[in-house]
Design a protein around this nucleic acid. Structure first.
Lengths: 236, 236
DNA sequence: ACGCGCTAGATCGTACATTGTTTATCGAAA
DNA sequence: TTTCGATAAACAATGTACGATCTAGCGCGT
């Protein structure tokens, strides 16, 4: 985590992102990304035979991948009628952001009290990269922003909460990648990140937590506005 | 929800508790309960062939059930080495309670602002049954207590949060069923429930939320103390 | 037009082949 | 004799193929 070119977002340690089997792993990830990135439409049927053919395997790995996705909430099942894509709509995104608003402040509070000099240096390094990039490459920004928050939550003792955050984050990252940042939002992100670092340095846990709550809420509002606008455009 | 004998805890609407396939459904539930109730030891290997034989099916339904459980976090997988039971230890329970402390107040706040006369009547009815039972039948208390909180969270617009709460609740219900309630805890539960109803009636959302936070935290502390004691006894 | 039955297609369960891992046994060296 | 190492055999996970069961959609008959 010291290379200047290192900006690929990594999950917090101890969280298994891989699928079960060698074949199943890629299948799981492929289908999942197809759902999150919107290549598979909402409520679309997931026919096992088709997926198997498309990915060049037999049906069994597909079935297991679908069950895994079901457990994670990305597909729904009706007995004897197969699987469907759970729609990642505004409600879904709103729900996730609201949970983030509740959980992230607590994670942040802990981080502020446990942050080392190296942590702060890492935060500032990533923040430097974020400002250097300055939203020119939105994909890169997305990765950097995720990395920024990962530094804070990575080592939290509540692995369950960290895992939850990461899973939500993966969805939101994919969703927000579809939109551009408004100028107001860009400014807010830079400002709030700087403020956050200042709070961490000063050890102001409460202020940091409160700031994160606003940060996440602002981020959610921003994405939801975009989704709403796009939906309106599509409908009109 | 009007019969006096109705005290079986039901999940909030819109949450699919059933497994995928007819056979797979029961398999999923059986294995899950074996894990939660502790009949399957922590980190125990889950051999597909064994489970299939034991439940009188072939391996495929077992594999799918395991993947489903993996997605829900009850089972861990290592490629080519199969599945293991994720230990439901003190850390796990603590993590879940801490998330509850963060989420439930928000759910409660919403409920207080949306509660109908019928909701309050239902709360009072269940509370009456709880006090009538007075912890004589701990299983029954567990169900009633779950029903009490379900009334509050059932119709929350954030389905994701409600679902999360329910999943956590199912685990905690099974864990806490193993222990008896201390007298202090019994008194606290009755008192806090009554207080909560009063807050709901008065429309004091903030007070109710704050009370729930304490309620959940107290419940968590109680269970964790029991677990700690049992572990100490086992080790000594 | 409406209902009934049939057929196409998909899910679900079983059986089997393949691949990788673990364990036990045997042999050689210390 | 013991210990280490290699090899082989048992075992279990993963992938493939197939048959049974269920659903849905279409056409036919009334």
């Amino acid at each position: 985590m010291a290379e200047a070119s290192d900006f690929k977002a990594e999950p917090p340690e101890g969280i298994d992102t891989l699928g079960a089997s060698s074949e199943g792993a890629s299948l799981y990830q492929l289908i999942r990304e197809d759902i999150i990135d919107g290549r598979l439409a909402a409520n679309e049927r997931l026919v096992v035979t088709d997926l198997a053919r498309r990915h060049g395997t037999s049906t069994n790995p597909v079935r297991e991948a679908l069950q895994l996705l079901r457990g994670e909430g990305f597909v729904t099942f009706v007995p004897n009628r197969g699987a469907r894509v759970r729609p990642i709509d505004q409600d879904f995104v709103r729900d996730i952001y609201e949970i983030g608003v509740l959980i992230e402040p607590a994670l942040t509070r802990w981080f502020v009290n446990m942050a080392t000099v190296e942590d702060i240096a890492e935060l500032e390094r990533i923040q430097g990269l974020i400002e250097e990039n300055n939203f020119a490459d939105t994909f890169r920004h997305s990765e950097l922003d995720t990395a920024f928050h990962t530094v804070m939550y990575q080592r939290h003792y509540n692995r369950h909460a960290a895992e939850l955050w990461w899973k939500h984050r993966e969805v939101l990252r994919a969703v927000s990648r579809r939109f551009n940042f408004t100028l107001a939002r860009r400014a807010a992100i830079i400002r709030e990140h700087r403020e956050l670092i200042a709070h961490v340095k000063a050890g102001n846990a409460d202020e940091a937590a409160e700031l994160i709550a606003r940060h996440v809420e602002g981020s959610g509002r921003h994405v939801l506005e975009h989704m709403r606008a796009r939906n309106a455009a599509r409908a009109g």
